[in-house]
Every structure is written in structure tokens, then in C-alpha cells.
Nucleic acid binder design. Structure first.
Length: 306
DNA sequence: GCACAGGTAGATT
DNA sequence: AATCTACCTGTG
């Protein structure tokens, strides 16, 4: 067994995830700061934490952290992984009896979870996501951390956290454009100014009921229906949020015969059909549809359902 | 070379 | 209220 200098040993977590489900959770579009390392180990960061995760044979999920950050990680990891939420039990409450498709998706990704990320970082990453693929969102995220984030660890290491909104508010739009953000730089800059003028606004928003929180998020430049729902689902634990992106639009069109429906109509259908856990259903549908694309769709045969 | 990407916002019909 | 379109930039 190789010794990892500076890292704690591996500690068990009360979760059983296969390698592919862990990949879906950490690298499937919920979060953008996890990198796969050799040996099936994932390396990631959120706020002031750096951690590694792995699935050990027959032992479930385990974590490790830089020794200096281990207390912080130990405090925040349970919330980040939403350990208090029993997702398999929640999946039982989805309409599996009456909806064979969602039943199949659930069967294909056992124990799929929804992370509970810090809302500020979630907002930033999803402002990056407009018309971008996961790989590119991760590049933007890494770039802004590298150039504008505070160093992490004690003593400070080479890794950096994402800049806080207060820190982003001190950057120019040009600084942001140099982080490969493109037109999203204007949105990030505008949102930073908006938040800087309203101390505590984001935290208040997080505590409001879903509908009110969403309405407030929609006031931010660059935040529309889809991004607002992603922030609430992945950064505020609101499982009723049902983000409709092009993947879900295609999936719902083909699997539920909703060809020609507009995003708002699909969102309404999703909330009615899946109920207060629509966001969890969305994550299953999304994971399943992406896996179908990866595993069986030839590169030059794009899905055309619309 | 050029369409397109896990969207949004503003203009135009 | 429904339908275009521009917006940046890397990838195929």
C-alpha cells in the first residue's frame, strides 16, 4: 500500500456506491471540481475543503483529506454528500409502479445521490454552464480558482478555493473574460455586483420556500429558469426543483411522448408527474440518457428526437 | 471552415 | 405570448 504523505488514512462513510454511480454523482454535471485520479480515486474541493473519495471493494465509500484540512472536511463532508438524506428511500417514493421508464433509470443507477453544495459556488458554476459542456465548465471553474481564489491548506498549498462573491465583485469583467468565460463574464460580473449591494441576500434566498427562492434567483443577470433550478437542486437541497435542459427536453420528448413541448410545459409535466421529488427524478433521467448516449450512440449519429 | 454546446436576454413577429 | 438571435470560445 502506497503511503500518501500529508493525507489522512481512508475513513468509511455510510454509503454504498458503485464506481460508475460515484462518477455520475461527482462528474455528471452536479459539481465541477472533481477530478479522477489513477486508481479510481476522486479528488475534489468545495469552499475551504479538499477531499478524496473512493469506493472500496465491499466496504463502501471512503474519504481522505490533507491532514491540515481534515477537521474542516470532517465537519462539512456529511452535508456536502447530504448524508442525512436517504436517497434510496426517496427513490421508492417516485412513481416506479406506474412509470416503467423511471423505474428503469432508478435500477440503472442504484443509490444515485444529489449533492448539497455551497449555494454560492453552485451559483457561480452554473452561471458558467450556459451553452457549455461539462469539460469546459470544469475548465472555467479551474481557471477562476487558479487565478482568483485564495490558497487552501495550512501551510497554503498550490490548490485554491473558488473566489467568494465578494472577491469576484472586485474583479473587472475583463479579468473574468481572461478566465475563458466568454459572454458569461458579463453575467458573473453583474451577479457579483448585485450580491455585493445586498449582504446576506444569497443566504436569505437559500432559506426561503422553493417558489420564493426561485423568483429571487431569477432576478440575477444570467440566471434563467434552468440555472435557477440547478442552483436550488444542487446548492440548496430543494428536491422539487426540476431543471429542464436540452437533455431533459429530448429525454421527456422521446420517453414520455412530449415531442414539440416547450421547456416550461415539460417542467410543469415533470412537477405534476414526479411530484415533490421531481428533481431526483430529473437526475435519474439525466444520468440514464447520458449513459445511453455514451454507450451505444455512434459519434456521427446524434440523437434527433425533437 | 463551420455547426454546435446541459442558456439567457432582448428584439421581433 | 411564441419565435428568432446574439453572445464567447473550444471541440469535432
Amino acid at each position: 500500500m502506497k503511503i500518501d504523505a500529508g493525507w489522512t488514512g481512508w475513513t468509511d462513510l455510510p454509503l454504498r456506491l458503485t464506481g460508475s454511480v460515484l462518477e455520475e454523482v461527482l462528474d455528471g454535471g452536479q459539481a465541477f471540481r472533481w477530478q479522477r485520479q489513477p486508481g479510481g480515486v476522486w479528488h475534489g474541493a468545495w469552499e475551504g475543503s479538499i477531499a478524496r473519495l473512493r469506493t472500496a471493494e465491499d466496504r463502501g465509500l471512503q474519504w481522505s483529506a490533507p491532514v491540515s484540512l481534515a477537521p474542516e472536511v470532517g465537519r462539512t463532508l456529511p452535508r456536502y454528500l447530504a448524508l442525512e438524506t436517504d436517497f434510496p428511500a426517496l427513490a421508492e417514493a417516485l412513481p416506479r409502479r406506474t412509470d416503467p421508464h423511471i423505474a428503469g433509470c432508478i435500477g440503472a443507477f442504484p443509490n444515485l445521490r444529489i449533492l448539497r453544495q455551497p449555494i454560492g459556488e453552485t451559483l457561480l458554476c452554473f452561471l458558467f454552464s450556459a451553452a457549455k459542456q461539462i469539460v469546459q465548465i470544469k475548465q472555467m471553474t479551474a481557471r477562476i480558482a487558479e487565478r482568483h481564489g485564495a490558497p487552501l491548506g495550512r501551510p497554503p498549498g498550490s490548490e485554491r478555493r473558488l473566489p467568494t462573491w465578494a472577491e469576484i465583485a472586485r474583479l473587472t469583467e475583463s479579468d473574468l473574460r481572461q478566465c475563458l468565460l466568454g459572454f458569461r463574464a458579463r453575467h458573473v460580473h453583474g451577479t457579483a455586483r448585485y450580491l455585493a449591494a445586498r449582504p446576506g441576500w444569497l443566504e436569505e434566498t437559500e432559506s426561503l420556500p422553493y417558489a420564493e427562492a426561485k423568483e429571487r434567483l431569477l432576478a440575477l443577470p444570467g440566471v434563467g429558469e434552468k440555472i435557477a433550478d440547478c442552483v436550488l437542486l444542487f446548492g440548496a437541497g430543494r428536491l422539487e426543483a426540476f431543471p429542464v435542459d436540452v437533455w431533459i427536453l429530448r429525454a421527456m420528448a422521446s420517453r414520455y411522448r412530449l415531442q414539440g413541448w416547450r421547456p416550461a410545459q415539460v417542467a410543469h409535466f415533470g412537477r405534476v408527474h414526479f411530484g415533490p421529488l421531481a428533481g431526483l427524478a430529473q437526475q435519474y433521467l439525466f444520468a440514464y440518457e447520458r449513459s445511453v448516449g455514451r454507450n451505444s450512440r455512434p459519434k456521427d449519429d446524434p440523437v434527433r428526437v425533437l
